[in-house]
């Protein structure tokens, strides 16, 4: 932990701030949310890592996709993700967001979340233990340090493809595109 390193703070305050202050959007997408309350309360205390839950995506910079993603939830996930300000990080929690998990053959579950929004890291397991969230958080620190957690940049650059995938799964979306989707020549 280099939280006390003044040199690094002076060099890149934004990056250091991003690292040590993850505000998690308080949004239960699936059964994995049941692991979050013990994580943030007395038993495991996520606050010592600077991780606190917040109420709205406007304030958050970490999005935990906790559990399986149904088609209906996907709409809300995309909406929430788009409302989060840059820079923002996404972590898939549990095996369901990775490949559908035990719902691998369900007609109503999204199997590959990263087709619709960029995901910076995965926590495998069903359920993963709260400790694994901390491992994920510390791993995310390393990734931010090395400049590897760039999901939000990818989303901006490849927005056209993401939007296409989203509309394939959900039909026409009610809200306007976040970034311009047309070609520059148009």
């Amino acid at each position: 932990m280099d939280r006390g390193s003044i040199k690094k703070w002076l060099k890149a305050p934004g990056k250091m701030g991003q690292k040590y202050s993850f505000w998690v959007v308080y949004f239960c997408t699936g059964c994995g949310i049941i692991e979050i309350p013990p994580t943030i309360t007395s038993r495991w205390d996520a606050e010592r890592f600077g991780v606190i839950p917040v109420a709205t995506p406007r304030q958050a910079n970490l999005f935990l996709i906790t559990g399986y993603v149904s088609v209906k939830t996907l709409r809300a996930i995309i909406r929430t993700y788009e409302q989060m300000p840059d820079p923002k990080y996404t972590v898939g929690f549990g095996s369901c967001p990775i490949n559908g998990g035990m719902y691998w053959d369900s007609y109503n579950t999204i199997k590959h979340l990263d087709k619709y929004i960029p995901v910076d890291g995965w926590i495998a397991g069903c359920m993963p233990r709260p400790e694994s969230i901390f491992i994920a958080v510390t791993h995310l620190w390393t990734m931010i340090d090395k400049g590897m957690a760039t999901g939000y940049i990818k989303y901006r650059e490849k927005y056209k493809n993401y939007r296409k995938n989203q509309e394939e799964a959900l039909g026409k979306l009610e809200w306007p595109p976040l970034y311009p989707v047309g070609d520059k020549n148009e």
Partner: peptide, 20 residues
């Protein structure tokens, strides 16, 4: 500080929903 993006009035937080 970091710039903000101007959004429309109906781009609101609504618990993941889009309210017309």
């Amino acid at each position: 500080s970091a710039k903000s993006r101007r959004v429309n009035q109906d781009d609101n937080y609504a618990a993941g929903l889009f309210v017309p």
